[in-house]
Design a protein around this nucleic acid. Structure first.
Lengths: 260, 260
DNA sequence: TGCTAAATCTCGAAC
DNA sequence: GTTCGAGGTTTAGCA
């Protein structure tokens, strides 16, 4: 196991002057920065916000992204995306870290009156990230193996653009009907049914074929099943785990091809 | 200026054994935790993901929220919301931090093979957070001062539930017409117009009154103006800054009432 | 650049 | 607990 010499700067309770210097230095070196301290925060841009003083964790990433985290909650209370420009200022009683971007015009300012900790670190991270079984992957799997959905489905295309939106799966069944499938990775609700109905209605006006609207999801919200029937649509329940296995199988095959 | 004695534990390159001990201790004490180290990450739940090894910043908050941040990007690569249950395990070559929750059934596991830094901190943060000029605030301001929108508007209610959705503002004008206003804080697009049209069509079927559909936004997407006219609707441009001032005014008044 | 739809969306409120 | 809609949504994929 190879170990890397840590490239860290750690300052404990440096005071706002030394903290300011360390942050400025870290920003110019494009280090990852963690600042813990008492601060208030102002945001101005698409909206405005004001956060009264308190102890927070401020993350500044090497690409310029900035996050202000309170001690609880999974979401940052304030943030700025990557690609922003920083301005740090030392005032008599506070160190101000300001991040600005254009389009949209937004600015985030953190006023530190007390700094408990500054960490500047150079992190190396080139690991691959893979997320499986997105809706798009579902589309591809069903397109490649339509029998997983309907035994007699001959898919024509997926992600087909029609006037009201994008149809997930578009094909023909053995009875010559046009099949329009709306896929949901999560429980299908009213909105999904209405979307499908919209597609079906539109297509009825553009083709002489009979149109078959199929809602595909692992689950359907209660009460929505009756709506499906009332609108002359179908609901097909799928098992995401089975599809995940199909995705894995496809990936393995692809990897095998790559290795040949 | 009052200063608080920092309640910190800082461990630099503790090794996975000592790191494991420190993390376990910090979790049991409900501290905020920052772990920097080389790790791989597995997520399983609504989807699945696998993140290959690399150096990351892992945040664990006192309410059980957990975030895995790569050195770039404003969003965490993996996360788990607050209220999760942690299980930490020490393996021969890795320290595993696992967060589990039910409903939905999800688990996130971080495998540290190297720990560069562990910080456990007790943070105090009770500062108020105020976000101004949200869509809801717009509604309230217009409801309180309808003349900002239309000189002759008598609002009846806002956030009115009708069959196709929620009408932002609902009122009468001096000509006795039912006014339905759809508010957008950002540039209004096709979707906003269609939503408004849907509301107007629905209401025409439920009232003998004439119905006046008003789209309210700081800007309108190009080409959408013609659609507004074609559908017999109106577009009213507003200045968000003016409304922000009204919001501020309202807040001041409220604060004044509070102080009396 | 702009638009559309998805997201492990998250968050809150109403029912 | 479920559902529904908003969000400084963000993000990714195309036209």
């Amino acid at each position: 196991m190879k170990s890397r010499k840590p490239d860290f700067i750690i300052l404990q309770s440096p005071g706002i002057g030394a903290g300011y210097q360390a942050v400025k230095e870290a920003l110019s070196r494009r280090r990852n920065l963690i600042i813990i301290g008492n601060c208030s925060v102002e945001y101005q841009g698409r909206a405005r916000s004001l956060l009264e003083p308190g102890e927070r964790i401020v993350l500044v990433k090497s690409d310029g992204a900035m996050l202000v985290h309170r001690p609880t909650g999974s979401e940052p209370v304030n943030w700025q995306p990557s690609g922003c420009i920083f301005k740090s200022t030392l005032l008599p009683e506070a160190f101000v870290l300001r991040s600005v971007r254009k389009n949209p015009d937004e600015s985030l300012a953190v006023f530190f009156t007390e700094i408990q900790l500054v960490i500047a670190a150079k992190l190396v991270d080139v690991g691959d990230f893979n997320l499986h079984v997105s809706e798009k992957e579902l589309q591809k799997v069903i397109f490649a193996q339509p029998s997983l959905l309907l035994s007699d489905l001959k898919p024509i295309t997926y992600e087909k653009k029609i006037e009201p939106g994008f149809v997930d799966i578009y094909g023909l069944d053995s009875a010559g009907r046009l099949v329009v499938a709306e896929l949901k990775r999560v429980r299908a609700g009213k909105a999904a049914v209405l979307q499908l109905a919209k597609y079906v209605e539109y297509l009825k006006g553009t083709t002489p074929l009979r149109v078959r609207g199929v809602l595909v999801a692992p689950q359907i919200a209660k009460g929505v099943q009756t709506m499906v029937l009332a609108l002359g649509l179908e609901f097909i329940q799928i098992d995401l785990k089975r599809f995940a296995e199909s995705v894995a199988g496809k990936k393995d095959r692809k990897m095998g091809e790559f290795l040949v």
